[in-house]
Computed example of a mutant assay.
Amino acid sequence: MESSSELVPFPLLMTPITSNYRACTIPYRFPSDNPRKPTTTELQWIDLFYSSIPSFKKRAESDTTVADAPAKAQKFAQWYSEILEDLKKDPENHGGPSDCILLCRLREQVLRELGFRDIQKSQEDEENAKAISIFEDVVRLNDAIEDGTRRLENLVKGIFAGNIFDLGSAQLAEVFSRDRMSFLASCQNLVSRPWVFDDLDTFKVKWSKKSWKKAVIFVDNSGADIILGILPFARELLRPGTQVVLAANSLPSINDVTYPELIEFISKWKDGSGKPVAVDTSNLLIANSGNDLPVIDLASVSQELAYLSSDADLIILEGMGCGIETNLYAQFKCDSLKIGMVKHPEVAQFLGGRLYDCVFKYNEVLS
């Protein structure tokens, strides 16, 4: 479904938009803080975004769709650096104070103003092709696990392993430029349980009852994340008859999968030669979330997504940006799952976990 221009609050948020809902998980400042002086947390996050500039500049330089890309990439680095320096001098500059949503939005605005629409496209295409090439193997391995609980555990490992492939982390972007990480090896090398949030055992009990009628999944990255992590998981939800809505970004941001890209994936997934899907996909819907950032404020989603979500009984927010840096503590009127990997030291420190720790935060709403 196409997104209309007017955005609305996500209908299943427990708290009214005007009161307690705050998208950002980390408290960047408190009412007692000096409004003209950046807090320690704000400075920490400004520096984090500053450290990502070289990797974004490098991607932009190689964007063949933009004329004079190297010069414009240099201009991006200069402009965005200046904006970050401005925020250090006065938190209220550029629509501040700073948080991860504002810092992401300002970065995207600079890129788009210079004509860059999808600087990760060539990397995404490469990762998508690799993921598609082993999709059938991943599905076969999952299907070979007869025990439903063990199969769920394997699917969850697949989501975490797929979520490692994230070009929004400066450290991981550097890893990708040097080496290609193995999805199957990543599944076996996740940090040990218990994770920083670990409600998997509780989720298993509810999963075994197959009681959800409709699930909405806010998806994250292209490549292994969506193809090898989320699609096999969604496939398992579809098997007992659960309707699944996959919600994707309206515009490219870092390597997040977009609505048009997801439509293309699913059209291939549904193809008669696309075995071993072996599941009825008539209950699978694709929605444009209305979001254009790697994080999401659920106060503003597309009307179409709001409509499709109004009767859902399971909400899944996947990925560090969507389900950890924003919305980790968001409460919903139905069951909710926040799942993703911690890929920034600053987030790990705030949560009291480890770098590359896993978040599996499940909240069940008892009727």
Results as ranks from 00 to 15, higher is better:
4 S>E: 15
6 E>V: 15
17 I>W: 14
18 T>D: 13
21 Y>I: 00
28 Y>V: 02
33 D>R: 03
33 D>V: 02
34 N>C: 00
37 K>Y: 12
41 T>S: 13
44 Q>D: 14
45 W>D: 06
51 S>G: 09
55 S>G: 00
64 T>R: 15
77 A>D: 05
77 A>T: 04
78 Q>I: 03
89 K>H: 13
102 L>M: 05
104 C>S: 10
107 R>A: 14
110 V>L: 03
116 F>E: 03
117 R>G: 07
118 D>H: 13
119 I>M: 05
136 E>V: 03
143 D>Q: 07
145 I>P: 02
147 D>W: 03
150 R>I: 00
152 L>C: 14
153 E>I: 00
158 G>H: 04
159 I>E: 02
162 G>L: 09
171 Q>G: 07
173 A>S: 15
179 D>L: 02
191 V>D: 12
193 R>K: 11
195 W>D: 01
200 L>Y: 11
208 S>C: 02
208 S>Q: 09
216 V>F: 12
221 N>V: 00
227 I>S: 07
227 I>V: 15
232 P>Q: 04
241 G>A: 07
246 L>N: 11
265 F>H: 14
267 S>M: 13
271 D>A: 08
272 G>I: 02
274 G>W: 15
282 S>T: 10
283 N>M: 10
287 A>D: 05
288 N>Y: 13
289 S>G: 02
293 L>K: 06
297 D>R: 05
302 S>G: 04
303 Q>W: 12
314 L>S: 04
320 M>Q: 11
322 C>V: 15
323 G>E: 11
323 G>P: 00
326 T>D: 07
327 N>T: 13
334 C>E: 13
347 V>I: 09
350 F>T: 00
352 G>T: 04
358 C>A: 08
